[in-house]
Simulated scan of single mutants.
Amino acid sequence: MTTAGERTYPSIFVDDGVYAPQVDSFLLCNEIARRSSFSGARVLDMCTGSGIAAIEAARNGAREVFAYDISERAVACAGANAATNGVDVDVRVGTLRDAVDEGPFDVIVSNPPYVPSPHDPSGAGLHRAWDAGDRGRIVLDLLCSSAFRLLSRGGVLLMVQSEFSDTEESLRQLRLSGLRAGVVRRQTVEFGPVMYQRASWLEAMGKLEIDCRQEELVIIEGYFP
Rank of each mutant, 00 (worst) to 15 (best):
L217H: 04
F164M: 14
V109S: 10
I52C: 08
L28A: 11
A57T: 05
P10H: 12
L142P: 00
G123V: 06
G154F: 12
E209Q: 15
C212Y: 09
M205Y: 07
L174P: 03
E216W: 03
R63V: 05
A58K: 01
V89R: 00
I55Y: 00
Y196D: 04
F224K: 12
A20S: 15
T167R: 04
F164L: 13
S117K: 03
G154M: 13
N81H: 07
L96G: 04
S146G: 10
M159A: 13
G103S: 10
Q187H: 11
I219V: 15
F164N: 02
V194W: 02
L179K: 12
V184I: 15
L27A: 08
L158N: 02
G61K: 07
G5I: 11
L96Y: 06
V183R: 08
S71I: 02
R92E: 10
P21L: 07
S170A: 14
P121Y: 10
G94A: 09
P193S: 05
S110Q: 01
F224A: 10
L208N: 03
T95C: 02
T95F: 02
D106N: 13
R73D: 11
N111E: 05
T167V: 15
D134E: 12
R198E: 08
Y223W: 12
A82W: 00
F38E: 00
M1A: 11
I32V: 14
W130V: 06
P116N: 06
E209N: 09
A20T: 11
C212H: 14
V14E: 00
E56F: 03
V65L: 06
A67P: 04
S165G: 07
V194S: 01
M159S: 11
C29Q: 05
V18M: 02
Q214H: 15
R128S: 06
G79K: 04
I219D: 03
V160W: 03
E190Y: 12
V23W: 07
N111A: 10
D101L: 12
E221R: 15
S152C: 11
I210S: 12
R137I: 07
V107N: 05
E190C: 11
E216H: 10
T167P: 01
D101N: 13
P121A: 08
G17E: 12
E209D: 14
N111Q: 05
R34M: 11
I32W: 02
R175E: 15
